[in-house]
Simulated scan of single mutants.
Amino acid sequence: MFLLVGLGNPGREYEKTRHNVGFDCIDSIAGKYNILLNRIKFKGVYGEGNINGEKVILLKPQTYMNLSGESLREIVQFYKIPSNDIIVIYDDVDLEVGRLRIRTKGSSGGHNGIKSIIANLGTDEFIRARIGIGKAERDMVSHVLGKFIPEDREKLNQCFEVVRKSVEIIIKETPEKAMNKFNNFKAE
């Protein structure tokens, strides 16, 4: 069983912001595979389904970003999911809009949601799909909590489709195959 987690902040005021691309990507994947995100537990909203014949859980933690690890810890302990079967999808200010980077381990890179996950899981060995949201031109908070212009939203939609394809490869084959195929992806 794989756990796909999209990071974001709960609440209408955060919908479609740069910091919520993880939520948006999970919604896109849920739509493609007809997975209903209709269960509330583990400090999150989640749903179960299948991708490539493999059981998956899609999770959107409903803690704020900096406490995301609490939700992951609860669901991982309940379902006994190994860390290398966890895929976390989140925003990255160090990548240009629509660029994708997949990794199997590493530091938080300053991302508070990832810091929380590493602290709560006690490991940095889980798969990450980092979606570029571009560098902050002014202050970081207003950048990550800001909304995308329409052209950038279109780039994100392309990126979400590639994340979905990379998840299929990770599940069916290996994270390394997905990295080799998609780590140079940049939406046009």
Rank of each mutant, 00 (worst) to 15 (best):
C25K: 08
I127K: 00
K43C: 00
K60H: 00
F182A: 11
I170A: 11
G134P: 13
R103H: 11
H143Y: 03
A129K: 10
K181A: 13
D152I: 07
N112T: 07
I87W: 05
G98C: 07
R164F: 14
H111R: 10
I40E: 08
V162K: 15
V144A: 09
Y46S: 00
F2W: 04
L59V: 01
G47N: 02
I26A: 03
Q77M: 07
D94V: 04
R153P: 10
I127Q: 01
K177H: 08
Y33P: 03
K181N: 05
F185S: 03
L67P: 05
G47K: 02
F182Q: 13
S68Y: 03
G122D: 08
N112R: 15
F148V: 08
K147Q: 13
I133V: 15
N9T: 02
G113V: 05
E54G: 03
L36S: 10
N34P: 03
G11V: 01
G113W: 06
E168H: 09
F160L: 05
N50H: 04
G47F: 00
G22T: 06
R18E: 06
R18V: 04
M65D: 00
R99T: 12
M65C: 02
T63W: 02
I87G: 09
K172F: 03
V93L: 14
R128T: 06
M140P: 05
R138Y: 12
S142F: 07
S108H: 11
R138K: 14
I57M: 07
I131C: 07
N120H: 14
V21C: 09
I26W: 04
D91N: 12
K16R: 14
N84Q: 13
E161F: 13
I89A: 08
D92H: 12
I169T: 15
D92I: 05
I40G: 02
D139K: 09
L156A: 13
I169D: 14
K165G: 11
G106S: 04
M179P: 09
I89M: 11
I102T: 08
K60I: 00
R128P: 06
N183T: 08
Y14P: 00
S68M: 02
I51L: 10
D24I: 07
Y46G: 00
S71A: 10
I102D: 12
P10S: 00
E188P: 09
K41E: 04
E173H: 13
K55V: 03
H111Y: 10
F23W: 07
E125R: 15
R128H: 10
N157L: 15
A136W: 08
I102N: 07
G134D: 06
K55L: 05
R164K: 14
E48Q: 05
V163P: 14
I117M: 08
V144H: 10
K147W: 12
K105G: 07
Y46V: 00
V93C: 05
P150M: 14
D139S: 13
N184S: 14
G113C: 04
G11Y: 01
V5P: 02
L58E: 03
R101K: 15
K55S: 09
K55G: 02
G122H: 10
V45K: 08
R138S: 14
N180C: 06
A178R: 11
V162G: 13
H143W: 09
Q158L: 15
F160A: 03
I75W: 02
I89R: 12
N34G: 05
H111G: 09
L72C: 01
E54S: 10
G134H: 13
K186F: 06
A129F: 12
